[in-house]
Simulated assay, not measured.
Amino acid sequence: MSIKRIARHLVQHHWRAKQIFPPKVLTRIEQAIRRGEATHSGQVRFVVEGALDGRPLFRNQPARERALDVFSHLRVWDTAHNNGVLIYLLLADRDVEIVADRGIDAKVGTQGWENICRAMEAEFGSGQFERGVIGGIEAVSRELAQHFPPQGSRPNELPDAPVVM
């Protein structure tokens, strides 16, 4: 366990996420998800967590493992066509993870998701958090549109609003 990582998480904590993602930015992210979902039959969720605390932090939980927990907790896996996608940002680590349900994951693959994550992280590195998130949502939506085009009536199975933890 890295002392630097613990310190970074304790110092940045949750206020940082609310500072970088104020309500107006969260509204634009929600609109980007809604626009994207109009082009495919998948479901996209965005979650930003300012920092880990308590047990996840002190057992040195990696961002990927935390993203899997959030994916399960928010029931992103519970879609009719197994095509839910979670974009998870652990702000203290500036680490983006994409967790996709098996229907879409089998089509895009690990490298496809990694490319989207790295592009988002590059934007974050230059302080462009909103642009990075919306660009990531658009890239995920392009993948979903390619593999799961819209068909018939498409109920919105998951909320579009971003989650700030």
Score class of each variant (00 low, 15 high):
Tyr88Leu: 03
His40Ala: 08
Trp15Ser: 11
Ala51His: 07
Ile137Asn: 08
Ser72Leu: 14
Ala67Val: 03
Gly125Asn: 12
Asn83Met: 06
Phe148Ile: 12
Pro23Met: 02
Leu68Ser: 14
Ala100His: 01
Ile3Ser: 13
Trp77Cys: 06
Arg66Pro: 01
Ser126Thr: 11
Ala63Leu: 01
His147Arg: 12
Leu68Asn: 14
Arg8Glu: 15
Gln43Ile: 03
Val85Ser: 02
Trp77Arg: 09
Ile134Leu: 07
Gly112Ile: 07
Gln31Cys: 10
Glu114Leu: 15
Ala7Pro: 07
Tyr88Ile: 01
Ala38Pro: 00
Arg94Ser: 12
Phe58Glu: 09
Lys4Leu: 14
Asn82Leu: 15
Phe124Asn: 02
Ile137Trp: 05
Gln19Met: 14
Thr79Trp: 04
Asn60Thr: 06
Arg142Trp: 12
Leu57Pro: 09
His9Trp: 13
Asn115Trp: 10
Gly84Phe: 03
Thr110Glu: 14
Ala106Phe: 08
Met120Asp: 12
Trp113Glu: 11
Ala32Gln: 06
Ala122Glu: 11
Ile137Pro: 03
Thr110Asn: 13
Trp77Val: 00
Glu37Gly: 04
Ala63Ser: 04
Ile104Met: 05
Gln151Ala: 15
Ala122Phe: 02
Asp95Gln: 13
Cys117Gly: 04
Ser41Arg: 13
Asp95Met: 07
Val163Ile: 11
His9Tyr: 13
Gly42Lys: 03
Gly42Leu: 05
Gly84Tyr: 00
Leu52Gly: 08
Ala106Pro: 01
Gln19Thr: 13
Arg102Gly: 06
Thr39Asn: 10
Leu57Glu: 09
Pro56Ile: 10
Asp78Thr: 00
Gly84Asn: 02
Ala100Met: 03
Thr79Leu: 09
